[in-house]
């Protein structure tokens, strides 16, 4: 009984507390770099597209809003032929970033994407691709991978030995 009255009283005196609301469009909060907002596709240190079209972001996406097609250039380097994110479905959960093995897909601290027309929320690869490395500088997947995709020859990668000469006679 007393606790009920006390709750009422405590609630009542909140009238004189400072309000916590930040009046958003006039005032803007600081967003940390790892805030999960708009999704971008980044480039590697050599300014090439990082995305190798592995489809892991698409399969990780709980709302299935990422769709892409992988393609290969004449060197055998994989990239996305098209890459589409339907932001009208995206829930900014960041699973795609988590799944990305090449640090290509990243969520950035920008959430102001409202549109009057829902169709404008469908972002294609040219809308997503940025000119920098984003949050994770320095990584170039093809220097670590075993394939020769025009970035490094066989055996030239990080932690790789020279290719085996299979016709040598030494054991």
């Amino acid at each position: 009984m007393f606790s009920i009255l006390r709750s009422i009283w405590l609630t009542f005196i909140h009238m004189f507390h400072k309000r916590v609301t930040v009046e958003y469009p006039e005032k803007k909060n600081y967003l940390p770099p790892r805030h999960r907002g708009r999704i971008v596709l980044t480039r590697d240190p050599d300014n090439q597209e990082r995305c190798v079209g592995c489809y892991l972001c698409a399969v990780a996406c709980p709302v299935d809003c990422i769709s892409l097609q992988a393609t290969e250039d004449e060197n055998g380097r994989r990239s996305a032929e098209f890459f589409r994110i339907n932001f009208s479905r995206c829930i900014l959960c960041g699973y795609c970033e988590e799944a990305c093995p090449t640090d290509a897909i990243q969520l950035i601290p920008d959430f102001e994407m409202a549109e009057y027309n829902r169709q404008n929320l469908v972002y294609e690869k040219e809308d997503l691709l940025i000119d920098g490395q984003g949050k994770y500088p320095g990584y170039n997947f093809f220097k670590h991978a075993g394939v020769d995709a025009g970035v490094k020859a066989k055996g030239e990668g990080i932690d790789e030995e020279k290719p085996v000469d299979i016709k040598k006679l030494m054991p």
Binding site: H14, M15, R19, V20, E23
Partner: peptide
């Protein structure tokens, strides 16, 4: 408005 007032909102 009054609910907001008691909950430190606007």
């Amino acid at each position: 408005r009054t609910l907001a007032l008691w909950q430190d909102r606007y």
